[in-house]
Design a protein around this nucleic acid. Structure first.
Length: 780
DNA sequence: CAGTGAGCGAGCTTCCGCTTGACTT
């Protein structure tokens, strides 16, 4: 029996292909990359043409074993990994691991997953394109060199465990620069003028509409002058203009646009969007969700045409192709679309349904006709001055794609909610009744902070990162503490309103909340500090065009016009020199700032980045006099760059001693996990109902005794001299020694454990593995 | 969970891009 083995990257894809190929074919998957540079160490032989040291990743050993078995049984092996740089490299690695000759191995690609396409591909195999493989090696080696040579500089000059990289450092820089732009922004006031008119029809029925002055008045005086002038004026329609217009649908979803729309329409985080899309993909509801292509396959286009004509009529159909916008697009997959367009919904849990419907609508709309609209602009003049007010309206003449999908406008764009309001029929020259005119003080706005999805959009525009890495990159920069996603409260702001009504002018001052944010990305102090350090010392890598520049060179390698190791060599020589000089010469950075003098001690009060985060400090330690400095951690919402002297001084009201218990001080302070009461070695968190600055000694005592009761309930056994405890945890009883936890073997009663037995368990337990790859869950 | 504090004591940390799976100290 002759067997053909086809190796693809994704198991879900393997399953699909398996379904429509006969018994002669076995389709399996390699789960993405199978070999990589090991985590520890550079693993690049600089002296030897940057030879990479590839090893089979630990989590892929099982996959490789299975692949080898299948390969042995197969007569013919087809390498059907994705048709892009990374896919080509995976095929090449597969050759090496499966002992295939890369100069003979059968490499196949296809642009749509159908029986015909696969059969056609199998009948027309090609060879592995080594130029493309080398472009991938260049990409891989460059990223390792940048990441693993710059990060250690940060450990020395800023703080341990920090990281830098071609993608993440630029992502943080974008957020840092946006934040500074916002901090330095001064809102400029102006006065927006809105008039409300009415007309009365032949039945005596009143219909009202609004008109605005095209631009705002710069000052309150100008606005008042205008209103005073038009007291008692008559208003007439001076011109009516009608203009046809159209709107066109957007391209079908790529990873990036799906993340953006799911964020604005469904409120999904980037990570959640990908998790939900993954499930839809695995269940066969949608095509692959990590893609930069807006292409639809022939089969899909045919099905779409049929569906649109059937559901909405042929005038709603318009076949369209879309140019892929993003710079570094490799287009190995289709756009994200429903696998079966005839299903407008799926039977799944709520998030999956909602995301599916979004994808369905967007896909359908992408092949629908333009919406035809008519814009009407009415100019209104008065008999007292030369000012013009304008009423604008839009009428949809033909819905076209809008029947299905309305694209979200850019966030924070000035939304004219009444743009589509109807204007009652009026004639040129007609006199209008005036209800009121309101001049409202408005302020210019700084650029908006990035949401996760907006950051992805920006990165994609710069060609930085890939569909498979957008979500992980956003997790990384948060995990490293460079960036926080959080809501922020706004501040109150007063604004003036001047109203003309019944020939009277009234001035009022109102209050609004401004600057409130929900789920936006903020840089932390360490993010600011690291970015400044990197921009100063590694300007090239931090340049927004760095990726685009190296991508152009990878393309040269892919075209066979450049040798990859030579390209990397040209980059590495000056780069490595910068690493060396920076390591040698650059000052340690702490962002230290002198805020003033502590009035109590006369010592200087500074803020800076400490070992454990941003802190304030009064005085300096002096060994001779034995004088100590005083420290206080900055609160979560405070920043070295913006904290004031008064705010910093306030921090030193803690720790404070509020009484004595059992011969020891009872102290109150704020630690890493918030406010706490401390008695000797016991720490008790202070609930939100109390304030650490004002909590009473009595309340603190209650907290301490409650905590003790709780701990006693948790404690099963205690061997104090050994530092060993047996405790009741979330997952049942466990053994705790110092900072390590150990499992209790099944069938053993926790309370019956002897010290010897426990020490045996500790000895037998292998040290827990660190650095396990995890995705999805954020660890704090 | 764990509650610190002036980075020459030892050893560790880190990149980007493909893919999901197994796991509850």
């Amino acid at each position: 029996m002759s067997k053909n083995l086809i190796i693809v990257e994704s198991p879900a894809k393997a399953k699909t292909i398996n379904k429509f190929l006969g018994d002669d074919y076995v389709v399996t998957s390699c789960y993405g990359h199978i070999r990589d540079l090991p985590d520890s160490g550079l693993n690049i032989d600089i002296e030897n043409n940057f030879e990479p040291n590839y090893v089979v990743s630990e989590d892929k050993e099982k996959v490789i074993k299975e692949l080898k078995k299948l390969a042995k049984a197969a007569d013919e092996i087809y390498l059907a990994t994705d048709e892009d740089r990374e896919g080509e490299a995976i095929s090449w690695h597969l050759c090496d691991v499966l002992k295939l000759n890369p100069k003979k191995a059968k490499r196949i690609t296809y642009t749509e997953v159908t029986k015909e396409a696969i059969i056609h591909a199998v009948q027309n195999p090609r060879l592995i394109n080594m130029d493309l493989v080398n472009a991938q090696q260049a990409r891989r080696v460059l990223d390792r060199l940048v990441g693993y040579e710059i990060s250690p500089v940060l450990w020395k000059k800023v703080r341990p465990s920090l990281s830098a990289g071609r993608v993440q450092s630029v992502a943080v820089r974008l957020i840092v620069e946006r934040e500074r732009e916002i901090r330095n922004f001064t809102p400029v006031p102006s006065f927006k003028v809105v008039a409300y008119f009415f007309v009365t029809d032949s039945n005596g029925k009143k219909a009202s509409f609004k008109a605005e002055r095209a631009s705002n008045f710069k000052t309150q005086a100008d606005a008042e002058k205008f209103l005073k002038e038009v007291v008692g004026a008559t208003f007439n329609v001076s011109a009516i203009e009608k203009k046809p217009g159209k709107r066109s649908p957007s391209a079908p979803f790529t990873t990036s646009t799906l993340q953006q729309e799911a964020s604005s329409k469904l409120g999904f985080s980037v990570l959640n969007t990908m998790r939900v899309a993954q499930r839809l993909y695995e269940n066969g509801h949608i095509t692959y969700m990590r893609t930069d292509s807006t292409n639809l396959s022939e089969t899909a286009l045919t099905a779409l045409e049929k569906e649109i004509k059937k559901k909405y009529g042929k005038e709603y159909f318009e076949q369209r192709t879309y140019q892929t916008k993003s710079a570094g697009a490799q287009e190995a997959h289709e756009a994200i679309r429903p696998s079966h367009i005839e299903f407008a919904t799926v039977d799944a849990e709520s998030d999956e349904q909602r995301l599916y419907e979004l994808i369905w609508k967007r896909t359908i709309a992408s092949q629908m006709a333009d919406a035809k609209i008519e814009k009407t602009i009415i100019d209104i003049k008065n008999n007292k001055n030369k000012e013009t007010l304008q009423a604008k309206a839009e009428v949809i003449l033909f819905e076209g794609f809008l029947k299905v999908y309305i694209q979200e406008v850019d966030e924070d764009a000035e939304v004219d909610e009444e743009a589509e309001a109807l204007i009652p029929p009026v004639k040129e020259g007609q006199e209008l009744g005036l209800k009121e005119i309101i001049a409202t003080e408005r302020f210019t706005k700084a650029s908006a902070r990035y949401t996760e999805a907006a950051l992805v959009k920006k990165l994609e525009e710069l060609g930085i990162g890939r569909p498979s890495t957008y979500a992980p990159t956003i997790s990384t920069i948060q995990k490293r503490g460079y960036v926080l996603k959080e809501p922020r409260e706004g501040v109150e702001r007063k604004y003036n309103v001047i109203t003309l009504r019944d020939n009277k002018i009234v001035n009022e001052t109102k209050t609004e909340i401004t600057g409130a944010e929900k789920n936006k990305l903020f840089p932390t102090d360490i993010g600011l500090l690291v970015t400044d350090f990197l921009v100063t010392n590694f300007a090239d890598v931090l340049d927004y065009n760095f990726t685009a520049d190296v991508e152009a060179q990878f393309d040269k390698v892919a075209e066979g016009k450049k040798v990859w190791s030579k390209m990397i060599g040209d980059f590495y020589k000056p780069f490595h020199k910068t690493v060396e000089t920076t390591t040698k010469d650059a000052e340690r950075v702490s962002g230290e700032k002198l805020l003033g003098t502590d009035p109590a001690s006369g010592e200087p009060l500074i803020v800076r980045m400490g070992k454990f985060g941003p802190m304030a400090q009064i005085g300096k330690a002096d060994e001779e006099t034995g004088k100590k400095a005083r420290f206080a951690k900055l609160r979560a919402n405070q920043s070295i760059e913006t904290i004031t002297f008064e705010e910093a001084l306030e921090l030193f009201r803690l720790p404070r001693t509020i009484g004595q218990l059992e011969g020891k001080d009872v102290k109150v302070s704020i630690g890493r996990f918030g406010p706490y009461v401390q008695l000797d070695k016991l720490f008790v968190s202070i609930p939100k109902t109390f304030d650490p600055y004002t909590i009473t000694f009595e309340d603190a005592q209650t907290l301490i005794s409650e905590k003790r009761e709780k701990d006693a309930a948790r404690l099963i056994l205690n061997f104090e001299s050994e530092g060993i405890q047996v405790l009741n945890g979330r997952y049942g009883p466990f053994i705790k020694k110092d900072k390590d936890n150990y499992k209790i073997p099944k069938g053993t009663e926790a309370k019956d454990l002897t010290l010897d037995a426990i020490q045996e368990i500790i000895k037998e337990t292998p040290p827990s593995k660190k650095g396990k790859r995890s995705w999805g869950k954020k660890k704090t």
